[in-house]
Design a protein around this nucleic acid. Sequence first.
RNA 1: GGGCUCGUGGCUUAGCCAGGAUAUAGCGCCGGACUUCUAAUCCGGACGUCCCGGGUUCGAAUCCCGGCGAGUCCGCCA
Length: 559
Amino acid sequence: MFLKFKHEVKSALKSALDTTGYSIDDLYIEESAHSDLASSLSFRLASKYKQNPMTIAITIADAITIPENSLIDRVEVAGAYINFFVSKKFLNDTIYEIFEKQDSYGAGHGKGKAIIEHTSANPNGPLHVGHIRNSIIGDTLARILKKVGYDVEVQYYANDMGRQIAIVAWALDRFEFDRRKKTDHAIADVYIRANQELGDDPDLSQQIDEMMQKIELGDERMIERFDRATDLAISGITSTLERMNIHHDRFVYESRFVKDGEVADVLQELEGSGLAETIDGALTVRMPEFDKDLVIRRSNRTSLYVTRDLAYHRWKAEQCDRMIDVLGADHKLISSQLCYVLRVCGIKEPEIVIFEFVSLPEGSMSTRAGKFIPADDLLDQVEKQALVEVTKRRPDTGEDFRKRVSVPVGIGAVRYDIVKISPEKATTFDWESALDFDKLGAPFIQYSHARARSILRKTSGVPDSIDPSVLTGDAEISLVKQLARFSHVANTAASDLKPHIMAIYARELAEAFNQFYRLSPVLSAPDNLRDARIGLVECARIVLAGVLDVLGIDAPESM
RNA sequence: GGGCUCGUGGCUUAGCCAGGAUAUAGCGCCGGACUUCUAAUCCGGACGUCCCGGGUUCGAAUCCCGGCGAGUCCGCCA
């Protein structure tokens, strides 16, 4: 509804410009604290036409004609801004639309197929608190894209033939694998130990090199060893992701691009077209833009990560309209080099979402060095703390209830706490704030939803039709306005690939509902107002549930 | 050394790409509201050189230049 309103504002403004004879390429329409939409175009016109901006604003505002049944109520000029306000019809239509569309409310104009790749952590240990920033950003983006209408496929690109996996495979033969532990954690144990042992020993390093050559040549025994290592890690990673409501539609293994010859094709193509040349025995792409050339085939003929990644992207590009990669900041250079090669080959480039690092107070994390906090530990601790919080706040409930509620509250808190931060911000993990439920935002939103549910449980059902025009209180109106923003926010989040704006919207929506809740009694209101308010609560419930779903956060019925 | 990112009240943070009206919100701090649909709530208050210095502009947190500080990358690793 907000988008429709914006369109009406645009066309009203345009025709007013036509009648007044001003012309400008942009209408400078923006959201404002002073109105529902505002335009600052009179400032631009002022310098262009050498006139007073206030005079221009008034002239244009006077020329605006609001059609019958418009979503625009009125136009006002303040400080040379032209302010637009929504009409009663806007509010009513918003409620009707939510009633009609129910769970599908908020869908946007996304079309086509989107492939989004996220997490893709090396299978050499469990996910740690840095990896899950990738997972949560990626999963939220996938959900946002789905919401706005894309056909979304989520992929995990698993590195099953890199040096790290060779080390894991080597370690599995050498050290005891602790079967009592979750498999990904046990993998990390042997991997860390192997790295200690390998140290700078060139003889041992030579063994790893030999393993990598064998895997590249398709040695059966070696493939089995690598696969075993990969599977053990991936199965542990998958179960961690499941706990966070994160699902991948497809695991794409790097090795397939070597096996099926796509890597060879890419190399041949680059070599044949003269884009790559042999330097010191290694096939290299000259990169004038980066003052650093890119090796795509080692002198021992094995491929590199980036080579396989090229084949992967070439394969993906043909299957989708939008190709999105969520990557850590350490991938900035290599991913722009990848894009450079794709570009010169005439292959579609991915849209890349870069997130900055999560570090520990004592420094950056490293799986190899064993310096990391496993995501499983964080989830365990947060769930435990959530149980303490639920127990404290709901002494009236039984143990079953508390345990059942503490899981979504804990997991939701983790997801929200991570997604609410803009990806380009580097963060530091610390236990105290990770477990401080006064700071965590998700319960606030979940609580609003639970309150809406609670009211609805006490009614004999939502009326079939309501008269929204009796909803005239400030809190009611600002709640409806927030409800109307959903698809607008989803569309912006999808086109800019910014999941955090959805998190911020969720908070603002919950805030509007809580204010309404405090100010506007529902059950004790007189008949027609009571019905209308029940209807509004139902709308809020639908949208709160919808937003939480887009954020991948469960919405408890009660908490 | 070069590239990229970040720098906003005590802490965390929105806004920056597409410059505009009193700079967003949470935590913490001070004070108020539960005989009323769950107070994980709501209301009010204090707290700001938007890192610094120039420039562009009628107007700069936002754009440009130069600093400073933090993070990160610069492998025939991934």
